[in-house]
Amino acid sequence: MNALVSIITPVFNSQKYISDTLESVVSQTYSNWEHILVDDCSSDASESIIKSYLAKDPRIKYHRLERNSGAGIARNKAISLAKGRYIAFLDSDDLWHPEKLEKQLSFMEKNGYHFTFTDYDVIDEKGQKLSKKVKAKSFLTYKKALYKNPIGCLTVIYDTHFFEKQYMPSIRKRQDYALWLKLLKKTNGYGLNEYLASYRTGNDSISANKIDLLKYEWQIYREVEGLSWLKSSFYLLSAIVLKLKTYF
């Protein structure tokens, strides 16, 4: 097992956390990776922090967009630059545990899986672990995923030898969910039930406004997936019910 992994990270005004994120990649026990960070026109010190790491480790790559375009466009640019067989995702405020790549790639290669994800825990702004943890579905079909996005973006790896490069649709939010549905049309997804990543909550990321995101899920059902109004309504209502269950 020595295939190159391309790690995709969109960056926007991430100076508060980007060093921790980079450190979690540099600390991986699996060493054959490239980390492609695409800056969506940050106005803070993100660029200088990333370049300080780039100077020490040639596996780190930096690209700056000409205009602010959103996380989906930044991720797609990084995917277009990727040279690895495997595409992995890590946002600029999240963390990987040291054995994340090694364990997940072994899981994929041992079982012949092409699309996988893992459990993840949740940390606060200071990096302290919270009680909430998210378990990955051990087996996921396209139909099951329509009810609710059950996958943490920071845990995903897909195999370009099976899919070729796959990109996110040009919508402002929930592009990751749309991509997972696209992949699930070609093969089932498999979850590795180990906590191998940490999702940071309580910041100003685009995922903070849960209600606002529902309209983007509707857009995915209707415009991206081409579902009928009735089916779209059913799945959106199901998503709302499932989200409410996590709070009560």
Rank of each mutant, 00 (worst) to 15 (best):
R59A: 10
L105R: 01
E34Y: 00
A45F: 12
V26N: 02
S43L: 14
F115I: 09
N76S: 01
F115N: 11
H114A: 13
H63T: 09
N32A: 03
F117V: 09
H97I: 13
V26L: 08
W33M: 01
L65S: 06
I18Y: 04
F107K: 00
S19I: 03
G127I: 01
T118G: 12
E125W: 05
H63S: 14
E102K: 13
Y17T: 07
L54R: 09
S52Y: 12
D121I: 11
S19A: 12
I49L: 11
M108L: 11
E109H: 05
I87F: 07
F89V: 05
E125K: 14
Q104E: 14
C41S: 13
Q28L: 05
R75L: 01
R85E: 15
S46T: 07
A78K: 06
I49D: 02
D57I: 07
K83N: 15
D39C: 01
C41N: 14
N111G: 07
Y86M: 03
S48T: 15
D124G: 12
I73V: 15
D91P: 08
S24V: 00
R67N: 14
I36Q: 00
F115P: 04
Q28Y: 08
K51M: 11
A82C: 05
Y53C: 04
E23L: 12
D93A: 09
L101R: 02
Y30S: 02
I18F: 00
A74D: 03
D91M: 08
L130G: 11
I79Q: 09
